[in-house]
Design a protein around this nucleic acid. Sequence first.
DNA 1: TGAAACGTTATG
DNA 2: CATAACGTTTCA
Length: 424
Amino acid sequence: MSGSKALGGARRRRTRCRRCQACMRTECGECHFCKDMKKFGGPGRMKQSCLLRQCTAPVLPHTAVCFACGEAGKEDTVESEEEKFSLSLMECTICNEIIHPSCLKMGKSEGIINDEIPNCWECPKCHKEGKTSKDQTDGLGKRRMDNGEVSRWKLTDEPPASKKKSLSVEDAPRSDGPKRKKEKELPQDSGSKKKIKGAREKHLKKKVKPNSSDSSEANGPNSSSGGGHGSGTAAASALLSASQDQRSHQREKLERFKRMCQLLERVRDSSSSSSSSSESDSESDSDSPSPIAASEPSSPAYGGSARERNRRLAELGFSASEESEGESVAEVEVEGVEEPQRRRGDGARVRRAALEPEPEEEEEGVGDHRAAPAAPASPQPNTQTPPFTHTHSTVQMRFTSAPPPSPCMNQSVTLTLGAALIIL
DNA sequence: TGAAACGTTATG
DNA sequence: CATAACGTTTCA
């Protein structure tokens, strides 16, 4: 508790975006949380949202205001992306401060934008101090965002592959046992309803894993009892359709990012804090700072060009990696094959990435859901859950302020990005 | 360490 | 005011 920041009072909390597929979906009625809901006949103690409805891009509450000026986000009052960024509220994953980038005195370029979560970044200040989301928490204090934030958002990470399917039927929070203090209602359903066999609601919990496994595990949550028909294939196709949309989005994003980069370059005032690398890496503890090595041969499809791109970006102080999610881009299949090893996913995988002024970037495939229940609207536990897919951004970049290696950096950046566009 | 419970906040 | 749910705390 320390007081770092208002913990007791108005603790900023994120709310659902209401736009992503997850938000628009209806409760599955089968997961633990659904079962707990009163509407599904549960005790209502858990007070959690349906596992299938976990928002993929939680947004800041409307009541959020800038820590500095006290104003709300005003990104919608301007046109240019740069301005939008400056006027939008950004929440630091480390100190939790919400502020307008424009209200900061320091260069915004120092901030590390997390494009998985709207309006989320690691503010320049925290960065300078070398803090990382992990560092600050692991010490002894509590886990502020360590747990609360990152893990909460389905940022994904590695799934404990171990469990996952293990407990199949055990749900039913019925009957006694864990009751902390108030025992108001009792279990009406004495254990006789075991229904579904495959209720493995536990797999996505907080940190779901993104990539590859998606397809295979997607059907986990419920159903698809039929089982037989290749769920994977179905999912893949669905994803594919979605991917096309995504593709254009990606492109736009890229372009925006490009613009932003240029802007930032110009802005990147004072000194190039050379030692920026330390923090970033430590946080993710993974990626090697070394540019080249970092990017593993991810997708064969990209071939060497991708690698080169990464290398170049890295040299410029950027590091990029294409993490396409299952549905993001067309390489769904490819990804599926060799994704398993990338990202060891440590606790918090805040990835630095392209900016994303808008709280959007959803992912889900939009008109797909072949398997989706026709009328899931009714709160009946029978709906077959659609393949749960979640993804984030496809292209993620992290940029740190590295001393420009060469005078022609801008050009390089441009070129590189251009290449990226092509590749994508 | 993970799951459940619960206080508190966000929003209609 | 009621409901949904986030984030934290506590239990197993």
